[in-house]
């Protein structure tokens, strides 16, 4: 799976939980999930679970902690998929 494909899939996962439609429309690798997309902290758990299910990977808490932007999520997923 290419980086762009992973990005699009991650964006689709986050979309239902984002409260900032304008930021979502212009989202890129540097877009902050909490700060820019205004994803609620309770929904972060949903996002992590969705990523695990969608990509067939396990996301440890210490790795989830490093995911601040969409790009961080993409990097994590690509590393986990080898």
């Amino acid at each position: 799976m290419s980086k762009d494909e992973v990005f699009e899939k991650v964006l689709a996962i986050i979309k239902p939980f984002a409260k900032a439609p304008e930021a979502l429309a212009s989202a890129g690798m540097e877009t902050s999930i909490l700060k820019d997309l205004k994803v609620n902290s309770a929904r972060l758990v949903d996002v992590v679970l969705e990523i695990e299910d969608a990509f067939g990977i396990e996301v440890k808490d210490e790795d989830a902690d490093k995911v601040k932007t969409i790009g961080d999520a993409v990097t994590l997923i690509l590393a986990a998929k080898g």
Partner: peptide, 22 residues
């Protein structure tokens, strides 16, 4: 503060793995 019956919260609580993750 948490709105117990908010749709998003109900969905999260019902989601497999959510409670175990928290």
């Amino acid at each position: 503060v948490v709105a117990i019956h908010a749709a998003e919260n109900r969905a999260s609580f019902a989601r497999p793995g959510y409670v175990e993750r928290v």
